[in-house]
Design a protein around this nucleic acid. Structure first.
Lengths: 404, 404
DNA sequence: CGAAGCTTGTGCGGTAACTGAACTAAGCCC
DNA sequence: GGGCTTAGTTCAGTTACCGCACAAGCTTCG
C-alpha cells in the first residue's frame, strides 16, 4: 500500500499545508492537527489518509488515553524520499544523501577541481552521488531532488553562476538543466555560503527571525536570513563581506586587486601567509587551526586579531540588519573561542545597545555539515512549501490584521 | 447604492485578491481581470459586483470595441476611504489626509514638541488630523485607519516605542491603543525613517526588490526594503547607521556618548556646527542647504565630504545587502547633487563590481512627503492585503516552483 | 441596411473541497 | 458492566468556484 514516494503534487492541495506542519517530526494526533490547522475533523481525517497512502506520513503507537478512546498518532515519514546534497568547494565537495528531515543517510567527501569546468565537475559529483544513493539502499526513484552549493555568486532563480572569480568556465552555465539531464531529478543551486546559512538556521536556529552566518575559511563570506528566509540580494551578491575595506589596513593587497580587504587580512589564507612569514609553516586554514590547537601563542593572537577585524565589519552589518544571532562558521572557526571572542569584543563595543542587547554571537553548531544541511533544506522546502503559506504558518505580524 | 466605505472584511475572501490587483489605479475590463487572476469569468463578474456595491470599485467608460461588444472598465475607487497619515518629528509633524492610493487630499504641518510626552503630542496630532479630515470634506466614518511615524525605534507589531533617545516619556507607551481610543479608527505605528523608505519605495521604486533609503537630516538613519517589504530587524532597530563608527574620525564626540559616529561627522547638525565654527552662521540642516544653494564653496565642500563619509558606511551595507537602488532623502539631501555625488564616489569605488553594476544611487523623489506616503501605504496595505497573497501576486521566484 | 461574426455580460447547473453533525468504536472509572 | 469521555467514520449540506449556454451590444461585410 505505502507507495514509498509519490509527491503531494497531484494530491489535494490542502495536504501540502499538513505536510508543512508535521515536517518537524513531532508525532501528532488527528485532534492536534485539527487544533493546529483550524480545518475540520473530517478534512483532517481524509488528508491523513491520503498522506498515509503516499507514505509521507506514518502511523505510530497510540497515545495514552485522556479519559476516552486513545488517539493514534502520526509522524512525518522523513524516509519516504531522499535528497542528494552537495557542497562543492574549490578543491573538494562534501556530498550526502539525506532524508526529508535533513538527516544524513550516507556521506563522503570527493576530491575535485572546480576549475575543471562544470561538465566534468557535475558529472563527478552526480556519479559519486548515485554511488552514495545505492549505498544508502535507495534508487533514483526515491530522489526528491538535488541541492548544490557552489563557491561563487549564483543567480538562484536560474541556477546559473554569475561572474564567479574562482570557477573558470562556469559563468552562465545552466547547472540545473545539466544536472537534471544527468540524474533525472530536479536540481536547485545556490551559493555555498547561502546554503550554509540556511542549513545552520534550519537545524539550529529556526526560531530566530534574522540571522547572519559568517564563513571564515580561505575566504570570508556571509549569508543573511531575513524573516526566516534567505536574503539573496538583487544580484544574488548579498553577504559579500570579504572585500569590504578595512580602514587601517590600506596597504595589504588582496587577490581581488584592491587593497585592505577584510579577506586579505583576516581570512584563513591571510593568517596562514602571515604565520609562514613569522616562521610557522602554514598553508591552509586547517594548518592555522592545528597551530592554534597546539597552543601557538602567535597563532592565537593572530586569530583573535582577525576576529576583531571581522567584528569591525560585522558591527556595521549589525547596525543595518539587526539580527538576533550571528553564527561563525567555516574552517577557521574551529580554532577555538579566540576568533569569536575577537568578534564579540568589537561588535558589542561598536554597535548600539538596542541592537546588541539580545544579540548572540556564537560558533557554528552544524559545523562542516552546514552546507549539506542547507542544500537538503532548500530542496525539501521548495518541493513541499504550500503555494501560499496558510495563515497559521505566517509570521505573527502578517497573521494579525487590524480589523475595523 | 454606493455605500461609500464598507471594508472587504466581511466580504467574500476572494475580493481581497481582486482589490490588491486593481489598487494600482489602472482601469481594467472583466476580461482582463480574468486573464490576470486566472479566476473564472463568472467568479470575476460576481466579485466585481460585490466591489461595485461596496464602493471600492467604480465603473468607468466603456473601452473601445475590439470587434465585438465593447467592455465596460473598472477602476479602484481610491476615494472610498481615507487615511490619516502623520510623520512626527522632534519639533513638528507633517500630517495629511490621503485617499487609498496615497494621493494627498489635505495636508498641513503642525508645530509640536515631542518631548511633551505621548498624550499631549498624540492629542495634538489627532485633533489636527480631524480638522484636516473635515477640511477634506470627510468624516470619521470614512477613516480607514491612522498611520504614524515616530522619530525613534518602534516595535511595529505592538506599536510601542523602545528606548527612544529623543522622546522622553514615550518608552513602552501603547500608541495605537491611545490613538484608537481617541479617534475610533485602527492605528499603526512605525519608525519615521522606515515609513519614509516605504513611502519612497511604494510611490517611486515599487518594481525594485531591494532598496536602502537614507535619511540625512539632523541625524542619519536608514530604512531597508527587502523583497519589497520593510526589514525591521529583531528589535525594530534595523537601519540604524547613524552611530556606526568612522575609523578616521575617532576624536569627534557624538551625542550618543561614543566618538567618531557617522552622525557626529556627516549629519545636518554636524555640518551646521562645523560651518558655524568656520564663521558661517548655521543651526539647522535647512541653514546648511540654504548656504549650499547660495553657492558657498566651503559648504559644498563640506557637504560632499559628508557624502563620502556616508558612502563609506553605505559601501559595507551594499556588500551585505546588495540593493538595486539607494535613495538619499532627508532635509540635507536638498543641498544639490553634491551629497549624492560624494556618496556615489565612495560606494562605487569600494564595493564589488557585481554588487554595483546595476546599483543606482539617487536623490529622493518623494521628498518631504515620503514619510506621509509611507504611513498611508502601511495602513492601506495592512487593511487590504489578502490573508495569503495568491500565486500571481507573489515574487517570480516563489511563483515558479521546480516541477518534477 | 441587415445578417453574420465577434466579444462582452449573465444566469444556471455541476463539481470539488470542506464542514458539521450524527453515529460507531474504543478506551477509562466507578 | 454501565455510564462517561474521547477518537474515528460516514454522510449530507454548504460554499466557492468553474464551464457552459444564452443574451446583449457592437463591427463588418455583403
Amino acid at each position: 500500500m505505502a507507495e514509498n514516494g509519490s509527491l503531494p503534487a497531484g494530491q489535494a492541495a490542502g495536504t501540502a499545508a499538513l505536510l508543512w506542519l508535521v515536517r518537524d517530526g513531532r508525532p501528532r494526533t488527528r485532534a492536534e492537527l485539527v487544533a493546529e490547522t483550524g480545518m475540520g475533523r473530517s478534512t483532517i481525517a481524509e488528508r491523513v489518509d491520503t498522506l498515509l497512502g503516499s507514505g509521507l506520513l506514518t502511523q505510530t503507537d497510540n497515545a495514552p488515553s485522556t479519559g476516552g478512546r486513545p488517539p493514534s498518532t502520526f509522524v512525518f515519514n522523513a524516509a519516504a524520499r531522499v535528497v542528494l546534497a552537495a557542497d562543492i568547494g574549490a578543491t573538494h565537495a562534501k556530498t550526502a544523501i539525506t532524508d526529508l528531515s535533513g538527516t544524513v543517510l550516507a556521506e563522503e567527501d570527493l576530491a575535485l577541481d572546480v576549475a575543471a569546468g562544470p561538465e566534468t565537475v557535475l558529472k563527478q559529483v552526480t556519479e559519486h552521488g548515485e554511488g552514495l544513493l545505492t549505498r544508502a539502499g535507495r534508487g533514483r526513484a526515491d530522489l526528491l531532488g538535488i541541492g548544490l552549493g557552489l563557491p561563487g555568486p549564483v543567480e538562484h532563480a536560474s541556477g546559473k553562476p554569475t561572474n564567479p572569480p574562482i570557477m573558470p568556465g562556469w559563468d552562465g552555465f545552466d547547472v540545473p538543466g545539466f544536472v537534471e539531464e544527468l540524474v533525472g531529478a530536479p536540481a536547485l543551486v545556490d551559493n555555498d555560503v547561502n546554503l550554509m546559512a540556511l542549513g545552520e538556521h534550519r537545524t539550529q536556529w529556526h526560531d530566530q527571525q534574522h540571522m547572519i552566518f559568517v564563513k571564515i575559511a580561505t575566504g570570508i563570506g556571509s549569508g543573511l536570513i531575513a524573516d526566516g528566509r534567505l536574503h539573496r540580494g538583487s544580484q544574488g551578491a548579498a553577504g559579500d563581506m570579504g572585500h569590504v575595506q578595512l580602514p587601517h589596513e590600506a596597504d595589504v593587497p588582496c587577490r581581488c586587486g584592491n587593497t585592505g580587504c577584510l579577506e586579505a587580512v583576516a581570512s584563513g589564507a591571510a593568517l596562514a601567509a602571515r604565520l609562514t612569514e613569522l616562521g610557522n609553516e602554514a598553508r591552509t586554514s586547517a594548518d592555522v587551526v592545528a597551530l592554534a590547537r597546539n597552543g601557538s601563542v602567535t597563532t592565537l593572537k593572530l586569530v583573535r586579531q582577525a576576529g576583531r577585524h571581522i567584528g569591525e565589519v560585522l558591527a556595521t552589518a549589525v547596525s543595518f540588519f539587526n539580527p538576533s544571532v550571528i553564527v561563525i562558521g567555516g574552517a577557521l572557526s574551529q580554532a577555538g573561542e579566540h576568533l569569536v571572542a575577537g568578534i564579540r569584543e568589537v561588535v558589542y563595543q561598536r554597535s548600539l545597545p538596542l541592537a546588541t542587547q539580545d544579540l548572540r554571537i556564537v560558533q557554528s553548531r552544524a559545523g562542516e555539515r552546514a552546507g549539506v544541511y542547507g542544500a537538503a533544506a532548500m530542496v525539501v522546502e521548495h518541493a513541499f512549501a504550500p503555494a501560499h503559506l496558510p495563515r497559521y504558518l505566517m509570521t505573527p505580524e502578517a497573521a494579525d490584521p487590524v480589523t475595523a
